[in-house]
Design a protein around this nucleic acid. Structure first.
Length: 433
RNA sequence: GUGGGUAUAGCUUAGUUGGUUAAAGCGCCAGUUUGUGGCACUGGAGACCGUCGGUUCGAAUCCGACUAUCCACCCCA
């Protein structure tokens, strides 16, 4: 029974008026993306499973245990996208967008799916705003992408976000670093937690990220990746920092940032908030220069980020950030009797055709109930229609804030009268549309 | 996947040591001189007390399992 009346675990319905807040935030994102020259890409919710194995990495947790994978009726292995980058890269390569000039700049606002145990800021269906840039190798590109995220937060008025920055080098310098890490942690084999012991062989960098007090204490003395960067990677990382500084963007270097998706190299970054629970990363991203080639396409530099919509909304809520109120009804046309009901509907329709938010009775309610309803939906004006008004082709338009009533024609002058009354009220500051 | 908290109207909650028709506020609907909202008053609808099973003469209340939800680990956005 609950199957029929309860949304699946880890999913959420988005309802008014909250959905209005989402629209507002999404509008800011679209607008900032456009300002920075990014165009929207919409890719399928599902892709061939192989795509994620190759891009995200077949030993990552995301791929190993969190994907919604199934066989379709044609026997293909299909997966609901667990993140946005893979599909965007695939689409970019498939349609050879690099022929349109470089860099290619794309953004998306989509749902993603991961089979995890839900908790604060972590759902099975969640939504990401993300951007991807291809064909730009210079450090300034990293800064541009980071600045785009930053400008979204700034425009929304989000406070207390820390930009944490790191470089995880290229495959060459990372190999040396892995060796150094292994040597260091081998010395603490008896003290490391169980998961970290298994990480020691597979991916020692992850130990740096462990939250257990013992491991993180040990990790404090571990070698820093930054000391192992090759000359090119070092120069690139310094370049990114200098461009960020030039743009006035503050950041802190956090050598423990380790992204859990295999495709990252060089620059990685996160925007973290104290207003969230354990899932404190609102936005995370970085560079993935080898990815296009690894996916069998043209070798191109690439970078981008994903920004969690649900987490951002949680931060906005926690910080009580003021967002614009949903648009309210401008005028409600009440009516008594069938003839008046038709006239009310006709007038409401006429107003709506002019882009004015108008409403009339749809529930056959009494006048008093209609007025109550008008008040409830925040109508700035009401017009009451009865037999007298129909006979005289004249009615009164009431300003719900001041209670003042002004005559309005029901004939050809209706729109003119309506506009002059509403504009006058707006000029007086009595209402605001 | 592992651990802990919670589960009573749409929402927020009360429910005494198990004891009749499970309560309140908000919200919703309708009235309070049959043509005017906000305020106030009156009334109404709305709950198989998460589900199943057990203990008992009797369970919202005690026990167990399951499910959902929240939080943390893990992982990440």
């Amino acid at each position: 029974m609950a199957l029929l009346t309860q949304a699946p675990k880890g999913t959420q319905d988005l309802l008014p008026p909250k959905s209005w807040n989402w629209e507002t935030v999404e509008d800011v994102m679209r607008s900032e993306a456009a300002i920075h020259g990014f165009g929207e890409v919409r890719t399928p919710v599902f892709e061939h499973t192989e795509l994620f194995l190759r891009s995200v990495g077949d030993t990552t947790d995301v791929v190993e245990k969190q994907m919604y994978t199934f066989n379709d009726k044609g026997g293909r292995s299909i997966t609901l996208r667990p993140e946005g980058t893979a599909g965007a890269v695939r689409a970019m390569l498939e349609h050879a967008l690099y022929n349109d000039g470089l860099p290619v700049k794309l953004y998306y606002l989509t749902s993603c799916y991961r089979y995890e145990k839900p908790q604060a800021g972590r759902l099975r269906e969640f939504h990401q705003f993300g951007v991807e840039m291809f064909g730009a190798e210079a450090p300034v590109a990293d800064a541009e992408v980071i600045c785009l995220a930053k400008s979204i937060f700034d425009r929304l008025g989000v406070k207390n976000l820390t930009l944490e920055l790191n470089s995880i080098g290229c495959p060459t310098c990372r190999a040396k670093f892995h060796e150094a890490l292994k040597q260091y942690f081998e010395g603490y084999k008896d003290e490391l937690c169980e998961t970290c012991l298994s990480r020691l062989e597979r991916n020692p960098m992850r130990i740096l990220d462990c939250k257990s007090p013992v491991c993180s204490k040990i990790a404090e003395g571990a070698p820093h990746i930054l000391d192992y960067l090759c000359d090119d990677c070092k120069a690139h990382f310094e370049g990114v920092q200098s461009y960020l500084t030039a743009a006035g963007v503050e950041f802190v270097i956090n050598p423990t940032i380790v992204r859990g998706l295999d495709y990252y190299n060089r620059t990685v970054f996160e925007f973290v908030s104290n207003d969230l629970g354990a899932q404190s990363t609102v936005c995370g991203g970085g560079r993935y220069d080898g990815l296009t080639e690894q996916m069998g396409g043209k070798a191109m530099a690439g970078l981008g980020f994903g920004l969690g919509m649900e987490r951002l909304m949680l931060v906005l809520e926690a910080q009580k950030v003021e967002l614009p109120a949903p648009p309210a009804c401008e005028v409600y046309i009440a009516s008594m009797g069938e003839a008046a009901s038709k006239e009310a509907f006709r007038l409401a329709t006429e107003l709506q055709r002019c882009g004015i938010m108008a409403a009339c009775d749809l529930c056959s309610r009494g006048l008093k109930a209609q007025m109550k309803y008008a008040n409830k939906i925040g109508a700035a004006f009401t017009v009451v229609l009865g037999d007298d008004e129909l006979a005289n082709k004249k009615a009164k338009m009431k300003n719900m804030k001041t209670g003042e009533e002004k005559p309005i024609s029901l004939g050809e002058d209706f729109m003119d009268d309506y506009l002059s009354i509403s504009v006058a009220a707006e000029d007086l500051g009595e209402i605001a549309f």
